[in-house]
Amino acid sequence: MNQNAETIRVVVVDDHPVVRDGLVGMFATEPGIEVVGEAADGRQALVVVKQFDPDVVLMDLRMAGGDGIDAIAALRSDGRTRPRILVLTTYHSERDIRTALAEGADGYLLKDARRADIVRAIHDLVAGRPVLTAEALAVLTGRRGEEELTERELQALRLIAEGLTNRSAAARMNISEATLKSHLTHAFDKLGVGDRAAAVHVAYQRGLL
């Protein structure tokens, strides 16, 4: 970052237009932060970053047109430490956290973070301070235990255990099938399994169902 510049220049990378619009709108009223570019996937992010040379990139992880992990690795492939990269995602499995940080991400936040936390994270990264969620910190320090499932994740698992299909379970929960799959993916990650049958089995073993 140019030390004479007061405004932090940011690029937002997310495959959901609503999320991008929300972040851009949020920063539009935030003094000292300017969104100079947007990208809908990891490949596009590389082009936008090269074009605008931002100070900070907000990077989602899993995107259909090229994921954030590959983009982070590409941005760090020549040993550059600029721009600072803040992962902003809904995924927080140990694998996601370790991979993102190993490839060169400077910070890791979840999308349910408060506006003030995201703004502070951007300033912290530019100042050279790391930004980590409690989950990420636990992974790095080796103090990560069994993660608790959220009520929605448990509800999704219970319905799957009853033999419902994804579509039927989503309808029962009054959510989209994509959202149900997201709940199940998070539950699988927390339980350390890769499929529905194993998730139900482990959940029963732990007394969750």
Rank of each mutant, 00 (worst) to 15 (best):
H186N: 14
D195Q: 15
A100H: 13
G79L: 13
R76I: 03
F27R: 00
L46V: 07
I8N: 09
G32W: 12
R9Q: 11
V10N: 02
A178M: 07
T29K: 12
V24P: 00
A170Y: 03
A171P: 05
D117P: 00
D189L: 15
L180M: 04
R167E: 11
A203G: 04
D117E: 09
L75N: 02
E6G: 09
T29C: 07
H186V: 09
I85Q: 12
R20I: 07
T7A: 06
I85K: 10
G207A: 04
K181A: 11
G163M: 10
G142P: 11
A45C: 10
I122K: 01
A40T: 12
I175D: 07
L140N: 04
I97N: 08
Y91V: 09
E30C: 15
I97M: 03
A138M: 10
K181M: 09
D195A: 14
P54R: 00
L61R: 01
R9V: 13
A199H: 10
R152W: 06
D106P: 13
A187S: 13
L23G: 04
G37C: 09
S176M: 02
A73W: 05
L23R: 04
T150Q: 08
A45L: 08
D60L: 02
N166C: 01
V47Q: 12
E6Y: 14
G163V: 05
V57E: 11
A203P: 09
G65F: 11
E135K: 09
E153W: 04
K181C: 07
G192D: 08
H92Y: 14
H183K: 05
R158T: 06
V119F: 08
L132E: 00
I69N: 04
A169H: 00
D55K: 03
R172Q: 15
A45N: 04
A198D: 12
R76P: 09
I72W: 03
M26D: 05
T7E: 03
V200K: 01
D21Q: 06
G142Y: 06
R158S: 08
A71V: 00
P83V: 08
R120G: 09
P83I: 07
S168P: 02
G107D: 02
V119D: 04
D106C: 15
L209T: 01
E6Q: 10
R20H: 03
E146M: 02
T185R: 12
T89G: 10
L137F: 07
L23C: 08
E146L: 06
A187I: 06
I97Q: 09
G66Q: 07
T7Q: 08
M26S: 03
E148F: 07
D55P: 05
A138N: 05
G25D: 09
L132I: 00
D53M: 12
L46Q: 10
D195S: 13
E30R: 02
R152E: 05
A64P: 08
A178K: 06
L164T: 01
D117L: 02
V49Q: 05
G145T: 04
I122R: 05
P83C: 07
D53A: 12
L109E: 05
D117W: 00
V18E: 04
R84K: 15
G68Q: 03
E151W: 11
L208M: 08
E34V: 06
E38T: 11
D112E: 14
P83L: 05
L46D: 08
A40P: 12
T133R: 00
D60R: 07
F188G: 10
V200W: 12
